[in-house]
Amino acid sequence: MLKKRLIPLLLLQNGLLVRSESFSIHQVLGNPIHEVERFNQWSVDELIYIDISQDDACDLRRDDHKIRGLNDPLAILDAVSRTCFMPLTWGGRIRSVAEMRERISRGADKITLNSAAVKTPDLITQGAQVFGSQAIVVSIDSRRHADGTREVFIDGGRTATGWKPDDWAREAQRLGAGEILLQSIERDGTGEGYDLELIAAVAAATSIPVIACSGVGRYEHYVDGIRAGASAVAAANIWHFKELSDRGGKRALAKGGIDIRL
């Protein structure tokens, strides 16, 4: 049977790999290619790369790294896909079918849409028609308000949309999305665990796979995410700050009785 997936999520900002907290604090981790080589050697299930740059500026520290053209995210995608023999999802600043095609032809298997999907929902449908639903991942950033309700935010967590996450996920599926990448703004970088209510609500509202993200601090949190209804569990920071993070995560999932690829 289909195995649950464990996925590292890498964030790219102005040509460098960063870690994120609450969608607003970003610390530089370093070279965007070396991590991928490591994950490839570990034979991880899948990889998600998101370019969260807000402009085209590039960081001068790129001179420290031995890869040219780091200021161009597409050059990074080229380099990543040369060492990546696993499924690769690429996201960030994609606003047209032409931009989707560019990324898929360079080695991405799937692309994710976030802000553009909310602003131009037809983009989901167009992408699904050209590349198939399975190649279109709609990424949803949820923020929990003080009264307990949740709302979808776009533009890197800065703009409210009025959508409830489960309603928007259902609509994204109807428009042709093949997968949902679900992030929680207030859990991001906290290590407190996933927003399980959010995962359960979105999983119940859709029949496409949901990838849970945001908040993993311990490997056991992955098990909670799967039990809440996710088909795959992703995390960012834990992959950078723990040794043998793939083995550790897989072992925790197996111990939780979850069918995974060992």
């Binding site: 049977m1 289909l2 195995k3 649950k4 997936r5 299930d45 899948e46 639903s133 399975q134 093949g178 997968e179 859709t206 029949s207 496409i208 796979p209 088909s231 795959a232 690829r261």
Partner: peptide, 11 residues
């Protein structure tokens, strides 16, 4: 109970 697309590792 199963989701489509079928995405992931399977035997």
């Amino acid at each position: 109970a199963l989701r489509v697309p079928h995405i992931g590792w399977n035997d």
